[in-house]
Design a protein around this nucleic acid. Structure first.
Length: 399
RNA sequence: GGGGAGAUACCGAAGCGGCCAAACGGGACAGACUGUAAAUCUGUUGGCUCAUGCCUUCAGAGGUUCGAAUCCUCUUCUCCCCA
């Protein structure tokens, strides 16, 4: 276990990644205590792809770990089967045990890219451990610890009541379950996205009822997607933690300028002064620095440097990418649109034709706008270089 | 249980017998511009052996008609109001 950092400095670094802290004084007090704090973070394995937005609280958890504290990761295998009502898709179908397990495995793989999951430095618990043992009376006893009015304070519950939208009884109990996790693992601090504040508070309340010192709640700000909307897979504006270095770098480079300060703060380890200095320079360079920092954090500096060099080659010097996939096809004469389809560069020959007519296709580095071009690819013919749009390439050769 | 409104391409939404492969908006893709972007402008956005040609689409199944996304019947599903 690394030695604990200076409490003042620690607090400063935590604040930089935090949106709300309830309460700051309590956190300062605990950071000054002489034991490692138990930092709880819960994830419900309800989906499989973790992106940079999800990663913000995980990065904060990592920071606590670096500061000498002890992450307690809760795998919400019980809660996942219920579904946190926060989500817009309230009708999330109940997941099977198998699905939950499968998701959990991919989660840990992804989280492990940020957090040190070594059992000596991190505790991992499944909440089925205690919820699986509860009987109905235990559940009622838990429910008796709060009031309906208190639960209905939650913003999205209120909205749904007002909109006369369905609000199921079990959804009301979700915050209680999350809060009970805090009791069971004796959390000192719980982290979560800033939409989690209500649930985090419930942990405080339940711990207090149990005569424990209530946990400190720390929420993290929302990291917006590359286009400024909420980061989401459906918008295609997300950066998956598992994205290969080249893609990751490229995705970050497509970020809107205005979002750079947030991204520096929430997705990189640059300190405030350093980030400010970089941002004062040319936006292009700042973004390159950002992309490199994000990529390096997940793939290491060497991969980041390579991704950066490749990106510059491709988009600044308009050079060909260094790794063009090779496609082997049956020998013969091909109409250009068919060839594009065969090479996997277009979804249909019609789409390929349109692309050609719009000047989006290059054959051996020459723009070709004639959809009737015939490409002869007989046995022994040399490979032809195809480019569709700015970033799709293939070398096609007869099989 | 009663009454009403719907289901159209990736999404939202027009169309209500031929001029409909289907307006418009968003998204996506391409081109120009650029700092890689964003913004802006332009174009494209069912498929095909590439054609002023053919084929498959307007919830599903039948029917009327020379002709149906549009009319009729049934089925499925959604939403709203009343009980």
């Amino acid at each position: 276990m690394s030695p604990r950092a200076d409490p003042e400095l620690a607090l400063q670094r935590i604040r930089r990644l935090a949106s709300d802290i309830v309460t700051g004084d309590e956190l300062a007090g605990r950071l000054r205590s002489d034991r490692p704090l138990r930092i709880k973070f819960g994830i419900d394995p309800t989906f499989t792809e973790v992106h940079l937005g999800h990663a913000v609280p995980i990065r904060l958890l990592r920071l606590f770990q670096e500061l000498g504290h002890f992450p307690v990761l809760i795998l919400g295998d019980a809660t996942a089967r219920l579904g946190d009502p926060t989500g817009r898709n309230e009708q999330r179908p109940a997941l099977s045990k198998e699905e939950v397990e499968r998701n959990a495995a991919t989660y840990l793989d992804q989280i492990g890219r940020i957090l040190d999951l070594d059992p000596a430095r991190c505790e991992m618990r499944r909440n089925s451990e205690w919820f699986g043992r509860m009987d109905f009376f235990d559940a009622l006893k838990l429910a008796a610890r709060t009031t309906v009015a208190r639960l209905l304070e939650r913003d999205d519950f209120q909205k749904r009541m007002q909109a006369a939208a369905p609000l199921h009884l079990h959804e009301l109990l979700y915050p209680l379950m999350q809060g009970w996790d805090s009791v069971m693992v004796q959390a000192d601090v719980e982290l979560g996205g800033n939409d989690q504040l209500f649930n985090l508070h419930m942990g405080r309340l339940l711990q207090e009822r149990e005569g424990m010192q209530p946990q400190v709640c720390v929420t993290t700000p929302l990291l917006l997607g590359t286009d400024g909307r909420k980061m989401s897979k459906t918008y295609g504006n997300h950066v998956p933690l598992t994205a290969p270095p080249q893609d990751m770098y490229g995705k970050v480079m497509s970020l809107s300028d205005a979002l750079m300060p947030d991204w520096f703060r929430l997705a990189t380890n640059l300190d405030e002064a350093e980030a400010a200095a970089v941002l004062a320079g040319h936006p292009r360079d700042a973004k390159a620095r950002l992309a490199a920092a994000v990529t390096a954090a997940l793939h290491g500096p060497a991969a980041a440097a390579a991704a950066s060099a490749e990106f510059d080659r491709r988009f600044q010097q308009h050079a060909l990418p260094s790794d063009i996939p090779e496609v082997r096809i049956a020998p013969g004469d091909y109409l250009l649109p068919n060839l594009l389809k065969e090479a996997g560069l277009a979804p249909s020959t019609s789409a390929a034709r349109r692309l050609i007519e719009q000047g989006g296709v290059r054959l051996d580095e020459q723009v070709c706008t004639d959809a009737k071009t015939v490409v002869r690819l007989h046995d022994g013919a040399p490979a032809r270089l195809l480019q569709a749009g700015k970033r799709r390439f293939a070398r096609v050769a007869p099989r």
